[in-house]
């Protein structure tokens, strides 16, 4: 069922013809926060209540997009006079480059990547321009956790606009077993807009998305992530498609990219992606858990919960060596009983 929905979502298949199925399809899109993407594909061909629902989603996504563009403008403004050119990651990049992957996409925050050497300067510039450490992670332990173990600064929230920014200096945590060569990707980045910001090239965008989805997280938004991969893949020209796996190998991200190609090939029926995978398939044993989890997440309900069980330990395992993981979980559980944050109930993430 879900696979059919995914294909309808990107316009590879028509909308479900029966009323009840169409209602179920829209409900599915709503649950997965992809109504905006559905709107970009289907609003023009819709009428009546369906058109209303899609228009509503388009307007909401338009707001996110405006917010994102403006945040980019503000980041460039904050860094004016320095020669730091942050790379926009994920949604920010898709919007800056007007990619299909960015259309109708819901966003809650903006991610940028800067060389580690510039990290302090970037943080200082942002703080001077009105960003503040996010309350929910302002505690000493969280600060230490982010700074020492992770691949980003603790999130900053702008005091007036209340938007969040994640400043990364690498693409996977320092402690993760997968170490992507972010330096290579950073130096291949290209200017966006007026040149004060940058974006990755198309291949690196796909690679980063694959890393983010399969090697760094709990896969919380499966439909959204998979649709993103599909569009990013479609955005590659022939030469890029052919070179994709080589580039992935070069930057040390081959296995997530192979997972991603598997997803695009299997779920969206892309022959091109299937051909690229060719004989270089991952050993079934390594591939199986992730793929089961993807399938489970897509099915929702009990399957999704099962997938969570598979994925939650995995997401941590991907990020930290075992000893450190034990320490972190211990600290986390202790924090449940002994919170560091002194300010109660303030709006924060999670």
């Amino acid at each position: 069922m879900s696979r059919a929905f995914l294909r309808s979502a990107v316009g590879l298949a028509p909308l479900p013809p029966r009323g009840a199925d169409l209602v179920a399809f829209i409900a599915w899109g709503r649950r997965h926060h992809i109504l905006g993407q559905l709107a970009t594909v289907w609003e023009q061909e819709s009428a009546g209540k369906l058109a209303d629902v899609l228009a509503n989603a388009r307007i909401f996504a338009g707001h996110d997009r405006r917010m994102l563009s403006y945040e980019m403008n503000r980041i460039a403004r904050a860094l004016m006079g320095t020669d730091i050119r942050p790379v926009l990651l994920k949604g920010g990049a898709y919007v800056a480059k007007a990619l299909t992957a960015g259309e109708g996409r819901r966003v809650s925050d903006i991610d940028i990547l800067v060389p580690e050497a510039d990290l302090k300067a970037v943080e200082a510039a942002l703080l001077a321009a009105g960003w503040k450490p996010e309350v929910s992670t302002a505690g000493a332990y969280d600060q230490h956790y982010y700074r020492d173990w992770m691949h980003e600064l603790p999130p900053l929230r702008h005091a007036r606009r209340r938007t969040l920014i994640d400043v990364h200096h690498r693409l996977t945590p320092r402690t993760a077993c997968l170490q992507v060569d972010h330096g290579a990707m950073l130096s291949a980045a290209r200017p966006a807009g007026d040149g004060s910001l940058q974006v990755f090239g198309p291949m690196d965008r796909f690679i980063h998305s694959a890393v983010h989805i399969f090697a760094d997280g709990t896969f919380d938004t499966p439909a959204r992530s998979l649709i993103e991969l599909y569009y990013l893949f479609a955005d590659l020209d022939d030469a890029d498609q052919v070179s994709l796996r080589d580039r992935a190998r070069e930057v040390g991200a081959l296995w997530p990219v192979d997972h991603a190609l598997w997803a695009v090939a299997t779920l969206f029926g892309s022959r091109r992606a299937a051909a690229l995978r060719g004989k270089n398939r991952l050993s079934r044993l390594r591939a199986l858990p992730v793929r089961l989890a993807v399938a489970g997440k897509l099915r929702e309900g009990a399957w999704a919960r099962l997938a969570d069980v598979l994925l939650y330990p995995r997401s941590h395992w991907l990020r930290m060596p075992v000893g450190m993981l034990v320490k972190h979980l211990l600290q986390k559980s202790r924090r449940m009983i002994s919170p560091k944050s002194a300010v109660a109930g303030l709006p924060g993430r999670e």
């Binding site: 009983i337 002994s338 919170p339």
Partner: peptide, 8 residues
Amino acid sequence: LPAGAVPE
């Protein structure tokens, strides 16, 4: 409520 729950 555990230690730290109430602001200083």
